[in-house]
Amino acid sequence: MNSNERVRAGRHYVTGEWTQLAWNPDGRIERVVPGHGDGETWIAPGLIDLQINGGYGHDFNSLPLTVDTVIQATRRLWEKGITLYYPTVITNGDEEIEQLLRVIDAACREDELVGSTIGGIHLEGPFISPEEGPKGAHDSRYIKAPDWELFMRWQAASENRIRIVTLSPEWPEAAGFIQACAEAGIVVSIGHTAATPEQIREAVNAGATMSTHLGNGAHLMLPRHPNYIWEQLAQDGLWAGMIADGNHLPDSVIKVILRAKLSKALLVSDAVYLSGMPPGEYETHIGGNVVLTPAGRLHLARKPELLAGSAMMLVDAVCRLAESELCSFADAWEMASTFPAQAMGQADRYGLKRGAQADFVLVEKRKGELRILETVKGGCSVYRMDR
């Protein structure tokens, strides 16, 4: 089939029935109808990664960050089925954060397709817990209380592209900051926190709607109950982000999160720039010397029991979760596509349905692997596997 034709077909990722999808010149889906065919090509919504720090050697948090780095990273992510993502800027100095935000904004303006693939920026910190454990690998020198004036300065630098803020509600200033974010249409996610259950509830009442990599960025030891993980699981209004790379959370914990959250569970990669790189030892600006094993586990060289981030792309996490039989392939895929769209208040714009953006992938399912054959973004074929 000519890649310029505005029709694609494959097995529907939910039903398994052969399906034909067509879209108009404006990049909107016109019809999704039964089709005919054979083979193991599946059609599914494009993946949406709400939390990703980089990949394939491209790092969104290393200065100097260049426009070309952001553009090249985005193009590599198309190869992994990503049609929307939120580059994640983590705790750093005030000026450094501002510089990173300006470059990401410039990349969005430089390349239209890149700009449409970047749904917004995820600011993870610096308004997080300063405690050892909850702060994770974030630099304690820069951790601080929520500061609306400073945040507005960063938002101006990004041209209003900050769409998600991860913070800890343990700060006295948190509730007012969360309310201001919610009123501005910015999603507030609870993470890297040592907050009390009462502070978690106050944050939800103020407008927080998400949990950042629930179960990680936490103390090694917690009270049986109450604690901030149980409280977030119990809050029906919170979407639960999970890293399902097989290293950050045991499958038993993922199973509990899935049962507690039902249709409000989200998969995120939280991938660092070493994702997609060959196994070996690397030096990073966070964590120093690290080792990426052939199995994809990234750990500190000096202390192998401590993880140094995720090195698994989102599509591979979907595959691993489905292969674990904790949920179906369709459920795993939705946790990385339509559910993130819902969490960001954009359910109408995404999915395999009439009127939605033509953001979808053709994927081949193999045991232990999902191969992206083609990625279509807004009706444009942005990646096609050589066969």
Score class of each variant (00 low, 15 high):
L314I: 12
Q179R: 13
A206S: 14
T338P: 02
I243N: 02
T66P: 02
G55W: 15
S3Y: 11
V256P: 01
G241R: 04
A343S: 14
P223A: 05
L249D: 01
A107E: 02
H138P: 01
Q235E: 05
I162W: 01
V315K: 01
H138V: 13
H192T: 10
I286L: 08
R349T: 09
N227Q: 04
N4M: 07
V361Y: 01
C380A: 15
I254H: 02
T117E: 07
P223S: 13
L123E: 02
A195P: 01
L326G: 01
D245E: 15
L84G: 02
L238S: 03
R224Y: 14
K135M: 12
I200W: 00
E149S: 08
I121F: 05
I190C: 01
M335A: 10
A271C: 13
S211P: 00
N2D: 06
R75V: 12
S62G: 14
M313R: 03
M313C: 04
S168V: 14
I52N: 00
T66W: 04
A301Y: 07
Q199S: 13
A145H: 06
Q342C: 06
H36M: 09
W239C: 04
Q179T: 07
Q342Y: 11
E281C: 09
H213F: 08
F360D: 06
N247T: 11
M344T: 13
P304W: 12
V253T: 08
G378H: 10
L233Y: 01
G296A: 14
W171K: 03
E374R: 02
L352E: 00
M277F: 12
G125Q: 04
V256S: 07
A22E: 15
E17F: 13
A301V: 08
R349N: 12
A343Q: 09
Q155C: 12
V67E: 12
S269G: 14
V14K: 14
L238W: 11
P294G: 11
Y350F: 08
R297C: 03
T375M: 05
L150C: 09
L47A: 15
Y383K: 00
A106G: 03
G37D: 05
I43C: 13
G10N: 06
P146N: 08
R141W: 05
D59I: 10
I43V: 14
Q99E: 14
T209W: 13
R8S: 10
I90M: 08
R31T: 14
L65Y: 11
A203M: 06
N216T: 12
R259T: 08
G133Y: 00
G136T: 08
Q51F: 10
D105I: 01
V291A: 08
R349G: 07
V165Q: 03
A234C: 14
A195T: 02
T166I: 06
I190E: 03
T284M: 10
G119Q: 04
R201D: 15
L167F: 04
D236V: 07
L123Q: 03
L50Y: 12
C327V: 10
